[in-house]
C-alpha cells in the first residue's frame, strides 16, 4: 500500500531547474534510498516533500491525501518526521529533553496551565517512552548530557530518536551518515535496522554512502541533475551503467 507518492515535482531557483518532474513513491514500512551525486537535488526534494519549500509544479500525496500547501508542522502532525543533514538540535538541552519535547508535541500534551500546576513534572509513562527509545538507540548513558557535548554520530542518533518518538508513519533521513567514520556508520545502520524492524514506519533516506544504502534499502531512486535516472531494486540499480556513469563521470 503506497504511503507517500510524489508526482512530477518540479522546483526552480532563479531559472535553474533543481528538480525536474521527479516521481517518488514509498510503500508502508518500506526503506527507500535516494542517491545521486553532489548537487543532484536530493535535499531540495526532501524540502519539497516536508513542506519547507513549495514545489513549482507537481503533487505530493500522503496516505492518498494531497498535502498541498500544508506547513511543516501540519505535515509533521500527519506522521511525517525527518532528520537533518545540517543538524537541527536544540542547543543547551539534554538528550532526554529533546525526546520529551518531541513526545509531548506528538501527544499535544502540556501547555501553560499544566506547566504552572504540575510544575513541569515528567510523568512516569513519559519517562518510560523516552527511555525505551533511548535504550533502543543505545543513548541511555547520554540521556542527561547536553547535546552540545555529543559526538556527531550520537547527535545524529538523537535526531533519529526525536523523530521516532513521534510515532511517525514515515521518516525522512537526510544524510544520516555524513561526517561519520566507517565504524560509526555501521553502528548507526544496525541501530536503524533494529528500530525499523519493530515499528510500523517507512523510511526515505538520502545518502552518499552506497555501502550503507546497500545494507538498508530494498529499493533506490537515483537523481542526477534534478531528474530520476534510475529506480528499482538496489543491487540492480547500482549495477546500472547509467548510475555508475553519474557517480564516476565515466563516459565509455
Amino acid at each position: 500500500m503506497t504511503l507517500l507518492e510524489a508526482r512530477g515535482v518540479t522546483k526552480r531557483f532563479a531559472g535553474i531547474v533543481a528538480l525536474d518532474d521527479v516521481d517518488l513513491a514509498c510503500d508502508e514500512r518500506e526503506i527507500v534510498g535516494l542517491i545521486g551525486p553532489n548537487g543532484a537535488g536530493k535535499t531540495t526534494l526532501f524540502n519539497c516533500l516536508t513542506g519547507v519549500l513549495r514545489p513549482d509544479a507537481g503533487r505530493v500525496l500522503f496516505e492518498g491525501k494531497d498535502l498541498g500547501a500544508l506547513a511543516v508542522h501540519r505535515r509533521a502532525r500527519l506522521g511525517i518526521a525527518r532528520t537533518f543533514q545540517r543538524m537541527e538540535l536544540f542547543a543547551g538541552m539534554t538528550v532526554r529533553d529533546h525526546l520529551l519535547v518531541a513526545d509531548r508535541a506528538h501527544r499535544r500534551a502540556g501547555g501553560l496551565p499544566s506547566d504552572l500546576v504540575l510544575r513541569g513534572r515528567i510523568h512516569p509513562s513519559e519517562r518510560d517512552r523516552v527511555d525505551r527509545v533511548l535504550a533502543q538507540l543505545g543513548l541511555l548513558d547520554d540521556g542527561d548530557r547536553p547535546v552540545d557535548a555529543l559526538s556527531l554520530g550520537t547527535g545524529r542518533l538523537v535526531e533519529l530518536g526525536r523523530a521516532l518518538i513521534t510515532e511517525p508513519r514515515l521518516v525522512f533521513l537526510d544524510e544520516p551518515f555524513s561526517g561519520l567514520d566507517r565504524i560509526e556508520t555501521d553502528e548507526v545502520v544496525a541501530t536503524l535496522q533494529a528500530a525499523h524492524a519493530e515499528r510500523d514506519v517507512a523510511i526515505v533516506l538520502v545518502e552518499h554512502d552506497v555501502t550503507a544504502v546497500q545494507h538498508l534499502c530494498e529499493r533506490v531512486v537515483v537523481l542526477d541533475y534534478g531528474r530520476v535516472i534510475a529506480s528499482g531494486p538496489t543491487d540492480t540499480v547500482l549495477e546500472d551503467p547509467a548510475v555508475r556513469r553519474a557517480y564516476l563521470g565515466v563516459t565509455e
Partner: peptide
C-alpha cells in the same frame, strides 16, 4: 604547459 601545477578535486574521475 605554461608551468602551472594542478590539484584537481574530482568526484567524476575519468577526465
Amino acid at each position: 604547459r605554461l608551468g602551472t601545477a594542478l590539484l584537481l578535486v574530482e568526484q567524476y574521475v575519468e577526465h
